[in-house]
């Protein structure tokens, strides 16, 4: 399964970077969303994929199954998802302010105007 996910990750990265390279600042927002998702998926996949065996220790005291999903990347990604949202909301508001003040959404023009 991993090769397939690897291709998915590559596809999201490619789309994200393409969007981030656009001059229209609004497209940058979409790029940001995509790239943080790609990174999350990447970290999640690093430890390998395990089907149907979440890192939960049974409450009745029975032993864990032989193979259990790695909890560490999951913990990392969990916070990463929430923080990505926080940063996204910050940058989105920042971009909104920038377009309001500059009255343009072309990043090249913004730089010209800033001079």
């Amino acid at each position: 399964m991993e090769p397939l996910i690897a291709i998915v990750i590559g596809a999201i990265y490619a789309s994200a970077i393409y969007m981030m390279l656009r001059r229209s600042i609004v497209k940058l927002v979409i790029g940001l969303i995509l790239i943080s998702n790609a990174a999350n998926l990447l970290i999640f996949t690093t430890a390998g994929l395990t089907r149907g065996s979440p890192p939960l220790i049974p409450m009745d005291g029975s032993a864990l199954p032989e193979v259990v999903a790695d909890p560490l990347p999951q913990a990392l990604v969990l916070t990463a998802i929430v923080i990505a949202f926080g940063v996204l909301s910050f940058s989105v508001v920042l971009i909104r302010r920038a377009t309001e003040i500059m009255q343009v959404d072309d990043m090249d023009q913004m730089k010209e105007n800033a001079k």
């Binding site: 991993e2 090769p3 990265y13 490619a14 390279l21």
Partner: peptide
């Protein structure tokens, strides 16, 4: 550039 980076990321993961 985007495609190359994406391909590289895929290779890295693999």
């Amino acid at each position: 550039v985007a495609l190359l980076t994406g391909a590289l990321m895929s290779l890295l993961v693999l």
